[in-house]
């Protein structure tokens, strides 16, 4: 099998998973596609080395997280001054939105959100999550606990998502 074929095969098998993970991280399918493309291009550049890795999935996941965290740091993501107040949804009125897992995740800071996605969607252990995020296991545990606490604060007892 040629290098190109191997790359195509890997991407074909993992594209959907990468897109879904990216979507849960950013909450936007267009941005998720951009992040996935960024990861795939980087992976293609280093495919010779990457294809020999024992944990290639972990490597791509880590690239995805880095791509997303980098995206969050871009200048256009920062605050900007405007002469008009932005339109915001009225808090606490929309039951569907409150129950929507994406709107709940959107309230979390990036790294806590990443911890939840890796732990509950990618089904990683605490140690694997810590490795993917480049932090200690204790940090992962505390991030997860605080993230769940924030989610619970946005729910009422008896809501379908009540954990």
């Amino acid at each position: 099998m040629t290098t190109e074929q191997a790359y195509r095969e890997y991407v074909g098998a993992n594209l959907d998973r990468l897109r879904r993970t990216a979507y849960l991280l950013c909450g936007d399918w267009h941005l998720a596609d951009d992040l996935t493309s960024t990861v795939l291009v980087k992976l293609l550049r280093h495919w010779k080395r990457a294809s020999e890795m024992e944990h290639l999935d972990a490597y791509t996941r880590r690239m995805l997280l880095s791509a997303w965290l980098d995206e969050r740091r871009r200048p256009w993501r920062r605050e900007s001054f405007t002469d008009r107040l932005p339109e915001r949804p009225a808090a606490g009125l929309d039951t569907d939105q409150r129950l929507d897992v994406l709107s709940l995740l959107a309230r979390l800071p990036p790294r806590r959100r990443a911890v939840l996605v890796l732990r509950y969607f990618c089904d990683l252990s605490v140690a694997e999550t810590a490795q993917a995020l480049g932090c200690s296991e204790g940090t992962v545990k505390s991030h997860a606990a605080r993230a769940l606490e924030t989610l619970r604060a946005g729910l009422k007892e008896g809501d379908p998502l009540w954990i």
């Binding site: 959907d16 897109r19 399918w29 897992v101 509950y120 969607f121 379908p160």
Partner: peptide, 15 residues
Amino acid sequence: MDLTQAMLAATDNPP
């Protein structure tokens, strides 16, 4: 519904 199921459901129908 737990969080894992909710996340799977949220990404169930990707465009």
